[in-house]
Protein backbone atom coordinates (compact mmCIF):
# COMPACT_ATOMS: atom_id res chain seq x y z
CA UNK A 1 0.00 0.00 0.00
CA UNK A 2 2.73 2.48 -0.73
CA UNK A 3 0.60 3.53 -3.67
CA UNK A 4 -0.28 6.93 -2.37
CA UNK A 5 2.27 7.75 0.15
CA UNK A 6 2.05 10.49 -2.46
CA UNK A 7 5.54 11.81 -2.67
CA UNK A 8 4.90 15.53 -2.70
CA UNK A 9 5.42 16.91 -6.15
CA UNK A 10 8.06 19.65 -6.39
CA UNK A 11 5.60 22.34 -7.36
CA UNK A 12 3.48 21.57 -4.34
CA UNK A 13 6.37 21.25 -1.99
CA UNK A 14 6.15 24.78 -0.65
CA UNK A 15 2.42 24.52 -0.10
CA UNK A 16 2.82 21.26 1.68
CA UNK A 17 5.40 22.73 3.95
CA UNK A 18 3.19 25.68 4.67
CA UNK A 19 0.09 23.65 5.13
CA UNK A 20 -1.03 22.83 8.61
CA UNK A 21 -1.70 19.27 9.64
CA UNK A 22 -5.44 19.67 9.17
CA UNK A 23 -5.01 21.02 5.69
CA UNK A 24 -2.86 18.09 4.81
CA UNK A 25 -5.48 15.73 6.08
CA UNK A 26 -8.12 17.51 4.04
CA UNK A 27 -6.04 17.13 0.89
CA UNK A 28 -5.56 13.46 1.62
CA UNK A 29 -9.25 13.04 2.25
CA UNK A 30 -10.11 14.69 -1.03
CA UNK A 31 -7.64 12.46 -2.80
CA UNK A 32 -9.11 9.44 -1.07
CA UNK A 33 -12.59 10.38 -2.20
CA UNK A 34 -11.41 10.89 -5.75
CA UNK A 35 -9.88 7.43 -5.67
CA UNK A 36 -12.97 5.96 -4.17
CA UNK A 37 -15.02 7.47 -6.98
CA UNK A 38 -13.05 5.28 -9.38
CA UNK A 39 -14.37 2.29 -7.57
CA UNK A 40 -17.90 3.56 -7.24
CA UNK A 41 -19.34 2.84 -10.72
CA UNK A 42 -18.38 -0.83 -10.51
CA UNK A 43 -19.65 -1.17 -6.96
CA UNK A 44 -22.97 0.54 -7.66
CA UNK A 45 -23.47 -1.54 -10.78
CA UNK A 46 -22.90 -4.75 -8.84
CA UNK A 47 -25.12 -3.67 -5.94
CA UNK A 48 -27.93 -2.93 -8.39
CA UNK A 49 -27.61 -6.16 -10.33
CA UNK A 50 -26.55 -8.70 -7.72
CA UNK A 51 -26.91 -7.47 -4.12
CA UNK A 52 -30.36 -5.91 -4.43
CA UNK A 53 -31.78 -8.86 -6.40
CA UNK A 54 -30.37 -11.18 -3.74
CA UNK A 55 -32.04 -9.23 -0.93
CA UNK A 56 -35.24 -9.30 -2.98
CA UNK A 57 -34.88 -13.07 -3.28
CA UNK A 58 -34.75 -13.28 0.51
CA UNK A 59 -37.91 -11.17 0.58
CA UNK A 60 -39.62 -13.44 -1.95
CA UNK A 61 -38.64 -16.48 0.08
CA UNK A 62 -40.63 -15.12 3.02
CA UNK A 63 -43.68 -14.65 0.84
CA UNK A 64 -46.51 -16.92 -0.12
CA UNK A 65 -46.58 -16.31 -3.85
CA UNK A 66 -47.61 -18.63 -6.64
CA UNK A 67 -48.04 -17.10 -10.09
CA UNK A 68 -51.07 -19.31 -10.65
CA UNK A 69 -52.81 -17.40 -7.86
CA UNK A 70 -51.39 -13.90 -8.29
CA UNK A 71 -53.87 -12.30 -5.89
CA UNK A 72 -53.15 -14.70 -3.07
CA UNK A 73 -49.87 -13.10 -2.06
CA UNK A 74 -48.98 -12.65 1.59
CA UNK A 75 -46.17 -12.68 4.12
CA UNK A 76 -45.46 -16.28 5.01
CA UNK A 77 -42.62 -16.13 7.48
CA UNK A 78 -40.51 -19.26 7.21
CA UNK A 79 -43.33 -21.36 5.71
CA UNK A 80 -41.44 -21.77 2.43
CA UNK A 81 -38.42 -23.07 4.30
CA UNK A 82 -40.31 -25.44 6.53
CA UNK A 83 -42.28 -26.81 3.60
CA UNK A 84 -39.02 -27.15 1.66
CA UNK A 85 -37.68 -29.25 4.50
CA UNK A 86 -40.82 -31.34 4.91
CA UNK A 87 -41.77 -31.78 1.23
CA UNK A 88 -38.75 -34.00 0.77
CA UNK A 89 -37.37 -32.02 -2.18
CA UNK A 90 -34.67 -30.09 -0.41
CA UNK A 91 -32.43 -32.74 1.13
CA UNK A 92 -32.15 -34.91 -1.98
CA UNK A 93 -31.34 -31.77 -3.91
CA UNK A 94 -28.63 -30.65 -1.49
CA UNK A 95 -27.30 -34.20 -1.60
CA UNK A 96 -27.27 -34.20 -5.39
CA UNK A 97 -25.56 -30.81 -5.53
CA UNK A 98 -22.89 -31.73 -3.00
CA UNK A 99 -22.22 -35.20 -4.44
CA UNK A 100 -22.00 -34.01 -8.04
CA UNK A 101 -19.66 -31.22 -6.99
CA UNK A 102 -17.49 -33.44 -4.78
CA UNK A 103 -17.13 -36.25 -7.33
CA UNK A 104 -16.54 -33.98 -10.31
CA UNK A 105 -14.03 -31.74 -8.54
CA UNK A 106 -12.11 -34.68 -7.06
CA UNK A 107 -11.93 -36.56 -10.35
CA UNK A 108 -11.07 -33.42 -12.29
CA UNK A 109 -8.21 -32.68 -9.87
CA UNK A 110 -6.86 -36.25 -10.15
CA UNK A 111 -7.05 -36.35 -13.95
CA UNK A 112 -5.84 -32.78 -14.09
CA UNK A 113 -2.80 -33.75 -12.02
CA UNK A 114 -2.11 -36.75 -14.24
CA UNK A 115 -2.26 -34.69 -17.42
CA UNK A 116 -0.30 -31.83 -15.86
CA UNK A 117 2.53 -34.19 -14.93
CA UNK A 118 2.49 -35.80 -18.37
CA UNK A 119 2.43 -32.46 -20.18
CA UNK A 120 5.11 -30.94 -17.98
CA UNK A 121 7.66 -33.22 -19.71
CA UNK A 122 9.42 -32.17 -22.87
CA UNK A 123 8.20 -34.21 -25.82
CA UNK A 124 7.37 -33.85 -29.47
CA UNK A 125 4.17 -31.96 -30.08
CA UNK A 126 3.71 -30.87 -26.49
CA UNK A 127 2.15 -27.54 -27.52
CA UNK A 128 -0.36 -29.36 -29.72
CA UNK A 129 -1.19 -31.86 -26.98
CA UNK A 130 -1.79 -29.01 -24.57
CA UNK A 131 -3.96 -27.20 -27.08
CA UNK A 132 -6.09 -30.29 -27.65
CA UNK A 133 -6.35 -30.87 -23.89
CA UNK A 134 -7.81 -27.48 -23.04
CA UNK A 135 -10.51 -27.72 -25.69
CA UNK A 136 -13.16 -29.54 -23.58
CA UNK A 137 -13.13 -26.66 -21.15
CA UNK A 138 -13.66 -24.12 -23.93
CA UNK A 139 -16.56 -25.92 -25.55
CA UNK A 140 -19.93 -24.37 -24.77
CA UNK A 141 -21.25 -26.46 -21.83
CA UNK A 142 -24.65 -26.93 -23.46
CA UNK A 143 -22.94 -28.23 -26.61
CA UNK A 144 -20.67 -30.51 -24.59
CA UNK A 145 -23.61 -32.08 -22.76
CA UNK A 146 -25.51 -32.62 -26.01
CA UNK A 147 -22.54 -34.18 -27.75
CA UNK A 148 -22.01 -36.57 -24.87
CA UNK A 149 -25.70 -37.37 -24.62
CA UNK A 150 -26.10 -38.36 -28.25
CA UNK A 151 -22.74 -39.27 -29.73
CA UNK A 152 -21.23 -40.89 -26.62
CA UNK A 153 -23.90 -42.16 -24.20
CA UNK A 154 -26.74 -43.01 -26.61
CA UNK A 155 -27.80 -46.66 -26.53
CA UNK A 156 -28.00 -46.90 -30.34
CA UNK A 157 -25.48 -44.52 -31.82
CA UNK A 158 -23.25 -43.69 -28.85
CA UNK A 159 -19.57 -44.51 -29.13
CA UNK A 160 -19.26 -45.80 -25.56
CA UNK A 161 -21.88 -48.44 -26.17
CA UNK A 162 -20.36 -49.28 -29.53
CA UNK A 163 -17.07 -49.99 -27.74
CA UNK A 164 -18.87 -52.00 -25.04
CA UNK A 165 -20.64 -54.07 -27.72
CA UNK A 166 -17.41 -54.63 -29.61
CA UNK A 167 -16.05 -56.10 -26.39
CA UNK A 168 -19.21 -58.20 -26.04
CA UNK A 169 -20.27 -56.31 -22.96
CA UNK A 170 -23.89 -55.33 -22.28
CA UNK A 171 -25.13 -51.96 -23.52
CA UNK A 172 -25.65 -49.36 -20.79
CA UNK A 173 -28.45 -46.79 -20.86
CA UNK A 174 -26.27 -44.21 -19.15
CA UNK A 175 -28.64 -41.35 -18.38
CA UNK A 176 -31.34 -43.62 -16.91
CA UNK A 177 -29.25 -46.40 -15.35
CA UNK A 178 -26.41 -44.24 -14.03
CA UNK A 179 -27.68 -40.64 -14.07
CA UNK A 180 -25.23 -39.44 -11.45
CA UNK A 181 -22.25 -41.00 -13.23
CA UNK A 182 -23.43 -39.51 -16.52
CA UNK A 183 -23.44 -35.98 -15.13
CA UNK A 184 -20.16 -36.49 -13.27
CA UNK A 185 -18.41 -37.88 -16.37
CA UNK A 186 -19.35 -34.86 -18.47
CA UNK A 187 -18.43 -32.38 -15.74
CA UNK A 188 -15.14 -34.15 -15.07
CA UNK A 189 -14.37 -34.05 -18.78
CA UNK A 190 -15.06 -30.33 -18.90
CA UNK A 191 -13.17 -29.41 -15.73
CA UNK A 192 -10.09 -31.61 -16.08
CA UNK A 193 -8.43 -29.06 -18.42
CA UNK A 194 -9.26 -26.30 -15.94
CA UNK A 195 -7.46 -28.17 -13.14
CA UNK A 196 -4.68 -29.22 -15.51
CA UNK A 197 -3.93 -25.61 -16.47
CA UNK A 198 -3.78 -24.51 -12.84
CA UNK A 199 -1.60 -27.46 -11.78
CA UNK A 200 0.64 -27.12 -14.82
CA UNK A 201 1.29 -23.52 -13.81
CA UNK A 202 2.19 -24.88 -10.39
CA UNK A 203 4.59 -27.49 -11.78
CA UNK A 204 6.28 -24.95 -14.00
CA UNK A 205 6.69 -22.58 -11.07
CA UNK A 206 8.69 -25.17 -9.17
CA UNK A 207 12.22 -24.38 -8.14
CA UNK A 208 14.31 -26.56 -10.48
CA UNK A 209 17.30 -26.31 -8.17
CA UNK A 210 15.49 -28.10 -5.37
CA UNK A 211 14.44 -30.89 -7.73
CA UNK A 212 18.02 -31.35 -8.92
CA UNK A 213 19.26 -31.35 -5.34
CA UNK A 214 16.77 -34.08 -4.47
CA UNK A 215 17.98 -36.09 -7.44
CA UNK A 216 21.59 -35.67 -6.38
CA UNK A 217 20.64 -36.81 -2.88
CA UNK A 218 19.34 -39.98 -4.50
CA UNK A 219 15.64 -39.45 -3.96
CA UNK A 220 13.76 -41.44 -6.60
CA UNK A 221 11.24 -39.86 -8.95
CA UNK A 222 8.33 -41.02 -6.83
CA UNK A 223 9.75 -39.74 -3.57
CA UNK A 224 10.67 -36.43 -5.14
CA UNK A 225 7.12 -36.16 -6.40
CA UNK A 226 5.38 -36.99 -3.11
CA UNK A 227 7.77 -35.12 -0.82
CA UNK A 228 8.57 -32.04 -2.85
CA UNK A 229 6.22 -31.57 -5.78
CA UNK A 230 2.92 -32.41 -4.09
CA UNK A 231 3.41 -30.09 -1.11
CA UNK A 232 4.42 -27.37 -3.54
CA UNK A 233 1.25 -27.98 -5.56
CA UNK A 234 -0.98 -27.74 -2.51
CA UNK A 235 -1.74 -24.07 -2.99
CA UNK A 236 -2.65 -24.66 -6.62
CA UNK A 237 -4.90 -27.57 -5.76
CA UNK A 238 -6.65 -25.35 -3.24
CA UNK A 239 -7.29 -22.64 -5.80
CA UNK A 240 -8.55 -25.19 -8.30
CA UNK A 241 -10.82 -26.83 -5.75
CA UNK A 242 -12.27 -23.54 -4.57
CA UNK A 243 -13.00 -22.13 -8.00
CA UNK A 244 -14.15 -25.47 -9.39
CA UNK A 245 -16.49 -26.10 -6.44
CA UNK A 246 -18.06 -22.68 -6.57
CA UNK A 247 -18.77 -23.04 -10.29
CA UNK A 248 -20.02 -26.63 -10.15
CA UNK A 249 -22.25 -25.95 -7.11
CA UNK A 250 -24.37 -23.84 -9.47
CA UNK A 251 -24.43 -26.49 -12.15
CA UNK A 252 -27.45 -26.44 -14.40
CA UNK A 253 -26.62 -27.13 -18.06
CA UNK A 254 -25.71 -30.84 -17.92
CA UNK A 255 -28.64 -31.56 -15.62
CA UNK A 256 -31.13 -29.84 -17.91
CA UNK A 257 -29.73 -31.61 -20.96
CA UNK A 258 -28.64 -35.05 -19.74
CA UNK A 259 -31.02 -36.14 -16.98
CA UNK A 260 -33.62 -33.41 -16.38
CA UNK A 261 -33.00 -33.91 -12.69
CA UNK A 262 -33.99 -37.58 -12.60
CA UNK A 263 -32.22 -40.28 -10.62
CA UNK A 264 -30.86 -38.16 -7.79
CA UNK A 265 -29.29 -35.48 -9.96
CA UNK A 266 -31.73 -32.67 -9.24
CA UNK A 267 -29.30 -29.95 -8.18
CA UNK A 268 -30.51 -26.86 -6.36
CA UNK A 269 -30.25 -24.74 -9.49
CA UNK A 270 -32.41 -27.21 -11.41
CA UNK A 271 -34.88 -27.56 -8.54
CA UNK A 272 -35.28 -23.79 -8.41
CA UNK A 273 -35.81 -23.70 -12.16
CA UNK A 274 -38.51 -26.36 -11.92
CA UNK A 275 -40.27 -24.74 -8.98
CA UNK A 276 -40.22 -21.24 -10.42
CA UNK A 277 -40.62 -21.69 -14.15
CA UNK A 278 -42.67 -24.86 -14.31
CA UNK A 279 -44.37 -24.89 -10.89
CA UNK A 280 -44.61 -21.06 -10.91
CA UNK A 281 -44.14 -21.06 -7.15
CA UNK A 282 -42.01 -17.95 -6.67
CA UNK A 283 -41.88 -18.05 -2.87
CA UNK A 284 -40.78 -21.66 -2.70
CA UNK A 285 -38.25 -21.24 -5.51
CA UNK A 286 -36.77 -18.19 -3.81
CA UNK A 287 -36.25 -20.26 -0.66
CA UNK A 288 -34.21 -22.73 -2.72
CA UNK A 289 -32.22 -19.81 -4.10
CA UNK A 290 -31.36 -18.69 -0.58
CA UNK A 291 -30.38 -22.23 0.38
CA UNK A 292 -28.05 -22.32 -2.65
CA UNK A 293 -26.30 -19.20 -1.39
CA UNK A 294 -25.94 -20.63 2.12
CA UNK A 295 -24.47 -23.83 0.70
CA UNK A 296 -22.08 -21.87 -1.50
CA UNK A 297 -20.98 -19.79 1.46
CA UNK A 298 -20.35 -22.90 3.56
CA UNK A 299 -18.29 -24.56 0.85
CA UNK A 300 -16.50 -21.37 -0.09
CA UNK A 301 -15.53 -20.40 3.46
CA UNK A 302 -14.17 -23.86 4.10
CA UNK A 303 -12.01 -23.58 1.02
CA UNK A 304 -11.59 -19.82 0.99
CA UNK A 305 -9.79 -19.27 4.30
CA UNK A 306 -6.52 -20.61 3.02
CA UNK A 307 -7.03 -19.61 -0.56
CA UNK A 308 -7.76 -15.98 0.14
CA UNK A 309 -4.27 -15.68 1.54
CA UNK A 310 -2.98 -16.83 -1.81
CA UNK A 311 -5.08 -14.27 -3.62
CA UNK A 312 -3.73 -11.54 -1.42
CA UNK A 313 -0.13 -12.71 -1.60
CA UNK A 314 1.71 -10.46 -3.99
CA UNK A 315 -1.53 -8.62 -3.61
CA UNK A 316 -1.14 -5.21 -2.13
CA UNK A 317 1.76 -2.91 -2.63
Amino acid sequence: MTATTTTPQPAELEDVKAATATDKRRVQKKELWRNRSLLLPAVIFLILLTQIPFLTTIGFSLTKWNLLYPNDRAFAGFDNYTSALTSGDLWPSIRATVLITAFSVTLAVLFGLLFAVLLDRQFRGRALARTLMITPFLIMPAAASLIWKYSMFDTNIGMINWVLQSLHLPVVAWSTEHPMATVVIVLTWQFTPFMMLILLAGLQGQDKGILEAAQVDGAGAWRTFTWITLPHLRMYVEIGVLLGSVIILQVFDPIAILTKGTGGTKTLAYLLYERAFIGLDVGQAAAYGVVTVILTIIVATIALKSVFKVFMAGGSR
Binding site: L49, I52, L249, Q250, A269, G289, V290, V293, T296, A300
Partner: peptide
Protein backbone atom coordinates in the same frame (compact mmCIF):
# COMPACT_ATOMS: atom_id res chain seq x y z
CA UNK B 1 -20.53 -11.11 -5.95
CA UNK B 2 -18.69 -13.39 -8.35
CA UNK B 3 -19.50 -16.33 -6.12
CA UNK B 4 -23.14 -15.32 -5.84
CA UNK B 5 -25.05 -18.16 -7.48
CA UNK B 6 -27.11 -16.98 -10.43
CA UNK B 7 -29.96 -19.00 -8.95
CA UNK B 8 -30.06 -16.54 -6.09
CA UNK B 9 -30.70 -13.51 -8.26
CA UNK B 10 -32.60 -14.80 -11.26
CA UNK B 11 -36.12 -14.58 -9.79
CA UNK B 12 -36.12 -10.86 -8.92
CA UNK B 13 -34.37 -10.09 -12.20
CA UNK B 14 -37.05 -12.01 -14.04
CA UNK B 15 -39.89 -10.27 -12.17
Amino acid sequence: TRFMPLAAIVLPLFM
